[in-house]
Nucleic acid binder design. Structure first.
Lengths: 132, 132, 132, 132
DNA sequence: GTGGTCTAGACCACG
DNA sequence: GTGGTCTAGACCACT
């Protein structure tokens, strides 16, 4: 299986952090479901052009968090009993269109991805502070 | 002037990267205008509780990019002739409400800020790849 | 490989500037070629008796200029595709003897190195202004 | 009198060092002779676009070295009895043509001024080390 | 008091 | 082991 991970080596964000967050996100979006077989460490490392040590660390950390389950000699699976800290998979059907819409509006104004993200992050924090 | 920078020391993103991007964003949003006097290195360092070396490096890098102008013994200014790579200041009046709207929808679905950002980043790249 | 850098801590010229210029010069002289592996930050710092932060900054700035390529965990390399601003490597075989000759003449007249440099710099600018 | 000083504010070399060396050089070249009247601090500061404090410091340091002589209310003069550490004015008539020749050769090879200076400085030190 | 350089040393991400 | 970030603090050049 080909995992749709978007890793940016230039962003300054640690590669393992990027991978871990995106895998969690795939699960929340329902694109990875409990029981699914994950790609092997080496496969993923090669396809993302990342050192396999780094991938292995991500898998290990996610297992430690209860998100993944390693079965020696068999493979790595998405855990059946997700810990509550991961949040339940969200119904994003009604949400993702809004995202796509905003992205379209941003591109129309020649905003870059980083700029949009910064804008949202800053506004989020401003709103959070306002709400206490 | 008090610069509204939102720095998150826990995010894993290098502090200088966060600062640099946010300063660029403030300029694009029109909150910082060419010729404006920036806070001093030390002032900003104190108010953000960041080492002054880190702030100085940000200022230095932004000067090297043509975004800021450093005058020794005088102060630091937003450059008058912004390089084209920075993009022109954008009219965000019609855009920011859409952002606020999306943030509200995300919070309603109990998405965290990081998750929303991840979601947008991934969708952005998926869309970019689709459009070629 | 031992890099033949001549750093003068007493000259008043910032160490990073000296290093950066000399590395660029080594490339133009052909003593460093595209793809060459540079000494590690720490090695160079020790051999020049300079703080490793200073060396790292030089490497970082040169990478930013497209002269070097830094690979985390691997090493630092001379960039393959040098930016045009660096100029092409020059054939100095026919030139360096002239330099040595002038240096000999200068020493014969008891000129110091600094004086010779000043003399050349001033004359260069006078000639430049004359030629328009 | 218009002093032909070539000051480069971007070179990283302290302005006072540049000025002091060039004034000393003008004396050695015979373009400034013992007893000559120097421009006033303010005049020189304005014409070079440098803070007058910096110029004043140069004059003060050069007086302290015995190179200049300050007469209050009258002006600043090149000292009549130059200290031996300054070296005697050199006959550069036979030398300057060699310099001009080398500069021409350098320009022909598209070397920049900085590169030529670096080249000479490095070669000078290499030769010094060779000679012991 | 401005920005700038440099040092010393700790810790991190990556291979 | 690689390069990279960050801190703390000293000292310098300039206005």
């Amino acid at each position: 299986m080909e995992l749709p991970l978007q890793i940016d080596k230039q962003s300054g964000v640690p590669l393992n952090v990027q991978m871990e967050q995106q895998i969690r996100l795939l699960i929340r979006r329902g694109l990875l479901k409990p029981g699914d077989l994950m790609p092997t460490v080496r496969t993923l490392a090669v396809s993302l052009e990342i050192n396999s040590n780094t991938v292995a660390r991500v898998y290990r950390d996610l297992q430690h968090s209860g998100v993944l389950l390693l079965k020696r000699g068999i493979g790595t699976f998405v855990a059946e009993n997700m810990p509550p800290s991961c949040g339940k998979p969200v119904d994003l059907e009604s949400f993702e269109p809004k995202v796509a819409e905003l992205i379209a509006a941003a591109r129309q104004r020649h905003l870059s991805c980083v700029e949009l993200l910064q804008l949202i992050e800053v506004r989020w924090k401003e709103i959070s502070n306002a709400h206490g």
